[in-house]
Design a protein around this nucleic acid. Structure first.
Lengths: 220, 220, 220, 220
DNA sequence: TTCTAAACGAGACGGTACGTCCCGTCTTGTG
DNA sequence: CACAAGACGGGACGTACCGTCTCGTTTAGAA
């Protein structure tokens, strides 16, 4: 949110302008990372309900005022922590559409199985409901994860595996959505084949998607 | 939680035994509905973050002790409210698998578009993360919604439209999951075809699923 | 402040109407005293600067919310604590004006020497400066201490020791004021006769007052 | 605090040695006065509770570090501000003890009526209670104001109006103390003759003191 | 009818976290 | 070196809410 309404709170995204050196003591660049790490650790030990601003501050060796200097409230810190956590997103390129999708589905499966990974989705859900941008968190998902997934299809098209009008967005949504449902169901229902073993689940989902994309796949 | 550990709290499910008439003043039968309605209204006005036990009690004209007499904590009340809200779940039976799936997808799309409906998913997500049963809320989803959706496939098999080993669970997950992703994305991304207009979105999702189920569909 | 403007906050003076039994759980009558005592103890151990609402709450075994339910803020609690502390004010009646004044001056001297007693004056000074009523604290001083001192002169008049137009208010002010100055000076100046030993100080002050009142004293 | 323990803070009294020209940028001579004025203004607008170091710094157009370079803490700045404010203390010499006392009492009365003047007493009270020296503030009072008042009696003795053993300290205390009580009572009690009109109050107080000093006054 | 158990409204209570404010220290760049 | 700016660790404040408790009142079946 570059042209933010009120100038008093500069927020964590400030100081991005290259030349303009600010006056006063500069913000400690390490500090932000230290806090984010502390937040994730705190979460790991106490769960989301037990995640306290005081707790994060204490663990990071930071004053509470500093937290609120950078993030307007707990939600924003939360979002930043998760955002930071998922920053490492590598491209998928195994050489084939089917195996690429398997990698994607499998990594999502693992990601959501980890409570920290799952929290990311939880936050997106909250954000979607409240109408808040939640610190631009969604931009990360839509700006990093989704493009990475879409690139899989672009490469498939380039290789001649699929026609250019393949509904990539839909398939991405299907894969993400189904994995979310798997993660949602896990705590309750481990029987009945709703949540089969991971490898089986991934295989069947990809089978289904390949069949669904049939009309757009070339014979080769 | 039928065989609840502690006997002090009888909970909202108590008094189901037919003959045993309890001594003392009987519970007000209207009250429960009044509270649940108040909770939903309170949510509609203030959002989930602003949903307060005191607020619900005040709006329902009820003492806080009464709330805790019936629901063990806020989560349970929340779950009950949403559960009550979604109680009206009718069977889907249009006579054809494709049109049944369209009805299912379309009703989910509408349901998630409504903030109250979306809240239901939000609660499930929260519950899945915290490891809590959230007052048996998940049972409703897995016990009512999912069976209603699975029945669609049973009828298709009965009609001879699909083979008995059709992966019904997977398709249900795909439809639910994709609609969840649509709902998640809505606030941010109305362009690029990620969230197309509802009717188009439903049609394309069902097309995809029908193609994905191809191997299990009979020629007829 | 009986007909207080806003009815939402009832304050500590509420519930004085005899017949009207309030609804809801009644306030714990011991609690108030427990808190006040805790406040004084906390002060004794940590000094006024170290007097914390959390500290008082913890020592009294009370929630912070309860403190703020009864006293609007720290100043009010402070005032109440000191007020409560000085509630025990006994009449002075030795049978003679001179000896009565000596008792008054001596008790003030001792009172101000004690840090808790001195705090009372400190609060009055603060209150006078801020223009606040500080919880009606001043009423105690002007309603209890001053009348008790004035009674000394009334009795002297009744005994025929002094004429009825004796400037009692002035003399009371002189005694109080001079003792305040003694207390103020004590920490710095123990030499030069500014603050002589207590007994001497009292005697000389009373001597001075008796001489000052000369015109209003009867020969006997 | 000339031989201050820690050498890091040179304090406001530094640089008094005549010849020793320091290295580096010299201290801005106006700055100190600007800060002190800002402190008094800030007090006048917001009251003592609202007196903030940041606020003073901002109003004086000064960095906070500069404040702490010259005064060790808030109390010291406070003391310096009040001290500076009352620096203008002129000798009293009307030619007669009685009229001198009237001038003294009247100027005290006016001084305490002004909130800034009253603040000075408030600070002394605080200082006396906390056991702190409050930046040597008391020295000012005992070193400037008191001698000025005592000089009145010295001159009276020199003129032959009073005997040398007149209890000057006591009378000074009486005058100061009584005026303090007047100032304390003002906000609450404007009736009953506790706080009569200024001129009357002064006259009666001096009358009383003159009578009290009777034994030490010469016939002349 | 009288007694007794439970539901109910009201609101006090202990506790915990929030987000704000301020103090006194520090670390920059500029004069 | 002084100085303005402002980040920083620390800690108290006053608010809000949770879930529990203790009252007095109401409602019914049991005695």
């Amino acid at each position: 949110m570059p042209p933010s309404g009120r100038a008093l709170i500069r927020g964590v995204d400030a100081e991005t302008e290259p030349g303009t050196r600010r006056r006063g003591r500069p913000r400690d660049p390490e500090l932000e990372q230290r806090v984010l790490t502390a937040a994730v650790q705190e979460y790991a030990e106490r769960g989301w309900a037990g995640l306290t601003m005081d707790g994060v501050a204490r663990r990071a060796g930071v004053g509470k005022s500093t937290l609120y200097l950078r993030w307007p409230d707990k939600d924003a810190l939360l979002a930043a922590a998760v955002k930071d956590m998922g920053a490492a997103s590598q491209a998928i390129d195994t050489g084939g559409l089917r195996s690429d999708l398997e990698v994607l589905a499998r990594s999502l499966h693992t990601f959501y199985a980890d409570p920290t990974g799952w929290a990311m989705t939880r936050i997106m859900i909250d954000a979607a409901g409240s109408g808040e941008q939640l610190g631009g968190f969604a931009e990360v998902v839509n700006g990093i994860y989704r493009p990475a997934a879409l690139a899989v299809f672009e490469r498939a098209v380039a290789r001649g595996e699929a026609r250019p009008d393949i509904p990539a967005q839909l398939v991405v949504n299907v894969v993400y959505g189904t994995e979310i449902v798997y993660a949602m169901m896990r705590p309750w229902d481990e029987k009945e084949g709703v949540v089969p073993d991971p490898e089986e689940a991934v295989r069947r989902l990809v089978d289904f998607c390949m069949a669904g994309m049939g009309p757009w796949l070339t014979g080769q």
